[in-house]
Structures are given as structure tokens and as C-alpha cells.
Design a protein around this nucleic acid. Structure first.
Lengths: 114, 114
DNA sequence: TTGCGGTTTCAAAAAAATTTGAAATGGTGT
DNA sequence: ACACCATTTCAAATTTTTTTGAAACCGCAA
């Protein structure tokens, strides 16, 4: 191990060294799951979709119209949000109406706090 | 406009149509800035780095040792976190010690709530 | 000045994510 | 059954992000 500045080194040792720090971190599963949520929200268009369907549940065709993108592009982005459990769709006749999940609403609250 | 299911259509109109919904969303700037933060946290390794430097400020060499990755790979990921204003580095002799920003700490609190 | 250690930068390669347009699927109406 | 509409799936193309290893930079010590 290289010679680290003393205060850093001592504090690190106090926490059990690198092993100790790593042990204090959340589980790999938790980190993975959180990063999936963040990834879904990492694209402005997907953020916009989530916030819009919180404002008002919308079918894909209205979302598509609002954003001005292709059907398949929209479908891709909706799937990312769905897979991250941020939105859910419910079938009404020919239409699928998308709205937020609890988690989706909670994440939007967080965005409001910034 | 295609014929949308009536309840959806009416609620939508009540909110000023698609234009009204879009107007109710945060600014493009705000969405962009938020998505940058989410993107920085979208990669498990970067999440881990943030949580570790919250636990204990660390120099790059200790982070590198903990994660077992190359110097340049680490540098890249640290830069993503820095650019998103989640971590900051301060120079101590040969070392740069990384710790969380206020925003970084706040985001970590959020992770704890899930 | 030179040598060394810590860290970043760089450009090309590799990997991952996204976009695209066509095809497929499912439901409704005639 | 056929036609139409809403939406997803698919595979290839495109774009973006990440990784890689070498070079460069910076500061400290002799």
C-alpha cells in the first residue's frame, strides 16, 4: 500500500481499512437495482415522459404526439421506464394508457426537491 | 388527432391539451441538469465510488485499490461524478482526496430511502 | 536537474445504448 | 374475412459511452 496522507490513512484504518469501507456499502443487488432506476431517468426524454404521465395518464399516441418522435423510438423508451418500474401501462380498447408507479411518483418528488 | 378514450381525452383537455401538459413540466434546462445527475449514478461502479467517499474521503489510489480497476478507468468515472457535481477533489501533496458534495450526499440519502 | 509517485489526458478500440424502418401483433368495426 | 388503428418487436445501422494502454502533467524529494 502506498504511503497515504496520515489523517486519511488513520481514518481509513479506523473504519477497518478498505475492506471495512466496502462492507459498509449497500449490497451489490441494491446498488444494481438503484443504478437501473437512475439509468432509466438519465435520458431527458424519459424524464419528460415520466413527468408528463404523472401530470396526466396518457396513451402512447399522445405521448408520441407531444414529443414528436417515431412509434418505435417511443416504444423503446417506454420499455426502459417500464423495466425500471417507474411507469405502468393499462389496456383500454385499442389504447395503452401509461401512468406512474409509486416509485415513479416518488422519484418525481425527488426531482422537485432539487 | 386520433379518437382517444373519452375519460383520457377529457382530462387531457381539462389540462389544456398536450400543450398544457408540456407547459406544466419543468424547464428543459432543469430536466437536462437532473438527467446528468441520474446518468452519473446510472453505473453501479460510480454509485459505489460516491457511497465509499461519503463513508470516508479517499484518494484516487485507494479507490482504485478498493475497486480493482485501472488508473485511467477510474479517472474517467471520477470525472463523470465531478462533472455532475456529486463529488469534489482536494489536493493534498501528491494526492487528490475525493469527498462528496452536498448534492452527492443528498443523492445518497435518497438511495438509503429505497 | 533528475527520478519517482499520483493522477489525468489522449486517441483508438471495444462495448453499450439508441435509432430506424419494416414487419408483426392485437383489438375493433364493417 | 378484410381493413384499419394502436403498439410492440425485430435486426441492422448509428450514435454514445466506456475501456484501454501509452503519454503527459504535476508536485515532492534528493
Amino acid at each position: 500500500m502506498p504511503e497515504i496522507p496520515d489523517p486519511i490513512k488513520e481514518q481509513c484504518e479506523k473504519k477497518g481499512g478498505l475492506k471495512g469501507i466496502e462492507k459498509a456499502l449497500p449490497s451489490k443487488k441494491n446498488i444494481k437495482s438503484n443504478s437501473q432506476i437512475f439509468k432509466a431517468l438519465a435520458e431527458p426524454m424519459r424524464l419528460k415522459i415520466l413527468l408528463a404521465v404523472i401530470e396526466q395518464p396518457l396513451c402512447a399516441c399522445l405521448i408520441r404526439e407531444m414529443l414528436g418522435i417515431s412509434d418505435s423510438k417511443l416504444s423503446y423508451h417506454l420499455t426502459v421506464l417500464k423495466d425500471a418500474d417507474l411507469i405502468e401501462g393499462s389496456k383500454q380498447a385499442s389504447w395503452i394508457i401509461y401512468g406512474p408507479t409509486k416509485l415513479g411518483t416518488k422519484m418525481a418528488d425527488i426531482i422537485d426537491k432539487f
